[in-house]
Computed example of a mutant assay.
Amino acid sequence: MRRRELLAGIVGTTAALIPSPATAAPRTGPVGDDPTAALERALYAPEPSGPVPAAVLDRALTSARNEFTAARYGRLGQALPALLGAAEAGRAAAGAARERAHAAIARAYILATELAVKQHSDMAWAAADRALAAARAGGSPVVIGEAARVLAITMRRSGRPAAAVDLLRRTAADLTGQSGAAPRAVGATLLLTAAYTAACDRHRTDALDLMSGAEDAIRRIPGGAPASPLFTVDATATQRDLYWIGVHNALGTPDEAVPYAARLTPASMPTAERRARLGTDAARMWHQLGDHRRTFAALRLVEQAAPEEVRRPALRALTADLLYSPSPVPGLREFARRTGAATV
């Protein structure tokens, strides 16, 4: 019964699976709650599940994606164990249904990886590996590209940026040469991620070349965009500008990021998660430039866009660093208490 209730909480449709409003209400808890706690158990002791109709599972995946893009990580963490169990139950399917089942498994693990990365959890490795294995079993180039992207992010965070860039380059080359908007758009997102990864490794020439390649790939997407959004990050000129900020921050040239930040606004970002990313990158940029007040203003933007984002480990660390800088910023201590960066 618990599996059905949890799956119902993210599907939002199908009468047999819909819980009452009280059951479906989002969990709230203290700042220190870890959205990945239930997910970690599910990775190593999966919840048993019977077959779930493909249409129901597709709606559940869409709902889970919406939780991620809305930066509701607590709800996503609660929903994913049941979703992973339901997706895994489809492995026994045959033919086209089997390919669809593997795509569903891959995308469930892609979301699990994204959530683990947000929380700096080591289980991102397990989730990303399973995502790519399922994607390859399903055979969809788009899903393979999406899975390769989250695996590369995990590789970068684990100290293997060169290998991550190589994986992203090779996978992007396969996708950008295909016809159709979706494969080319995924290929463009891989190049954006590769550029940021190279920048984190302080390879400026590679990072700039990869950004140039991503810009060209975005321009070449037929019709300008796929018919439906990509699973976590879209390939658009707006996202390109956002990545330019991150690339220059990583290269230690935040002054070169300022023009890109100046032409982006929260309203130009398509989701709460992306608005929070703009605030995060702007905060890092201003912090490197020594402007504490603007750093705090950007952190407040993150909080307004997505309260759970500002409580992530990386942003709590940035807040704490700002808190103990020699120049006091009005309102910062209260913000630090509220977001878990300080307890007194």
Results as ranks from 00 to 15, higher is better:
Gly50Cys: 03
Pro51Val: 06
Val52Gln: 12
Ala54Gln: 14
Leu57Asp: 00
Leu57Gln: 01
Leu57Phe: 01
Ala60Leu: 11
Ser63Arg: 14
Ala64Leu: 06
Ala64Gln: 08
Arg65Cys: 01
Asn66Lys: 07
Glu67Val: 04
Phe68Leu: 15
Phe68Val: 01
Ala71Cys: 09
Gly74Arg: 15
Leu76Cys: 06
Leu80Asp: 05
Pro81Ser: 03
Pro81Lys: 04
Ala82Ile: 06
Ala82Met: 05
Leu83His: 08
Leu84Thr: 02
Gly85Asn: 06
Gly85Arg: 05
Ala86His: 01
Ala87Trp: 10
Glu88Phe: 06
Glu88Gln: 12
Glu88Cys: 00
Ala89Gly: 02
Ala92Ser: 15
Ala94Glu: 15
Gly95Leu: 07
Ala96Gly: 10
Glu99His: 13
Arg100Pro: 01
Arg100Thr: 13
His102Asp: 10
Ala104Phe: 01
Ala104Tyr: 00
Ile105Ala: 04
Ala106Leu: 06
Ala106Asn: 09
Arg107Glu: 14
Tyr109Gln: 00
Ile110Gly: 01
Ile110Met: 04
Leu111Lys: 06
Leu111Glu: 07
Leu111Cys: 10
Leu111Gln: 12
Thr113Phe: 00
Thr113Gln: 02
Leu115Trp: 06
Leu115Val: 10
Ala116Met: 04
Lys118Arg: 15
Gln119Asn: 14
Gln119Asp: 10
Asp122Ser: 09
Ala126Cys: 03
Ala128Leu: 07
Arg130Trp: 02
Leu132Met: 12
Ala134Thr: 04
Ala134Ser: 14
Ala135Ile: 10
Ala135Met: 11
Gly138Asn: 03
Val142Lys: 05
Gly145Tyr: 07
Gly145Ser: 10
Glu146Val: 02
Glu146Ile: 00
Ala148His: 12
Ala148Cys: 13
Ala148Ser: 15
Arg149Val: 01
Leu151Gly: 00
Ile153Cys: 01
Thr154Arg: 08
Thr154Asp: 12
Met155Ala: 08
Met155Ser: 02
Ser158Thr: 05
Gly159Asn: 14
Arg160Val: 03
Pro161Gly: 08
Pro161Met: 09
Pro161Tyr: 09
Ala163Gly: 13
Ala164Asn: 01
Val165Ile: 13
Arg169Tyr: 00
Arg169Gln: 10
Arg169Trp: 01
Thr171Phe: 09
Thr171Arg: 13
Ala172Leu: 07
Ala173Tyr: 10
Ala173Val: 09
Leu175Met: 11
Thr176Ala: 09
